Amino acid sequence: MPSRSPQHVTIGGKTVRVVLTNHHYPMQVKDMTIEELKLLIQETVAETIQSLLVDPDEGKQIKPEVKQQLLDSLQRTQSGERGIPAEEVAKNLGLSW
């Protein structure tokens, strides 16, 4: 069995037990305390939310013709023009609505 040397580390204001081993695979959930599991879940949720909030197009430029199409569409919508109904789009794509 690999040797283990437990120590405590403070992360985000919480002190958790860390078990260092001489093998190269992560600790299993069955070896975690409830607090360690809660912290792992919190960190995983925070990382997932952060990844969803990142704009992959940040810093990219819009082509002038695309910008004009968007502005034209916005102007038509603001003047009361209606687009294609969702039901019609779904039907044209062969989707059941």
Rank of each mutant, 00 (worst) to 15 (best):
S3F: 00
N92A: 08
V18H: 05
I84S: 03
Y25V: 14
Y25F: 12
W97C: 05
A46L: 03
L93G: 00
I62C: 04
S79Q: 14
T10G: 04
L93F: 09
Q75T: 05
V54L: 07
E81D: 15
G59E: 03
L40E: 02
D72K: 01
K30F: 10
K67W: 00
W97F: 14
A90G: 03
N92R: 15
Q78M: 10
L52Q: 13
K30Y: 04
D31I: 10
Q28N: 10
S51F: 03
P64K: 09
L37A: 14
E58A: 15
V66G: 01
P2Q: 14
W97P: 00
P64R: 10
I49A: 10
P2W: 06
I11L: 06
L20W: 11
L20K: 12
E87S: 08
T44Q: 11
K14N: 06
V16Y: 01
K60T: 13
D31C: 08
E47K: 12
R4E: 14
A46D: 13
M32H: 03
L20V: 11
E47Q: 13
N92T: 07
P64E: 07
L74P: 03
V89I: 13
I49N: 07
K63M: 04
K30Q: 09
S79I: 10
E47G: 11
I11W: 09
E36C: 00
I84F: 01
E87G: 12
D72T: 11
K14R: 15
T77D: 08
Q28P: 01
K63H: 14
T15S: 14
K91D: 03
Q78E: 10
T10D: 09
P85Q: 06
L39Y: 03
N22W: 04
L37Y: 01
L71F: 02
E81Q: 10
P64Y: 01
T44W: 00
L37H: 04
G80C: 02
S96V: 07
P64D: 06
Q61M: 11
V19D: 10
N22E: 15
Q61T: 15
K63W: 01
Q7H: 07
S73T: 08
E65N: 08
S51E: 09
T77K: 03
R76Y: 10
M27V: 11
S73C: 02
L70C: 11
K14G: 01
E65P: 05
P56R: 02
T33C: 03
V16N: 06
T10Y: 01
R76T: 09
V89A: 02
L52C: 11
G94K: 08
T77G: 02
G12H: 05
R76A: 14
I11R: 11
E65M: 04
S51N: 12
A86T: 12
H24L: 13
S79H: 06
V66H: 05
L40Y: 03
L40R: 12
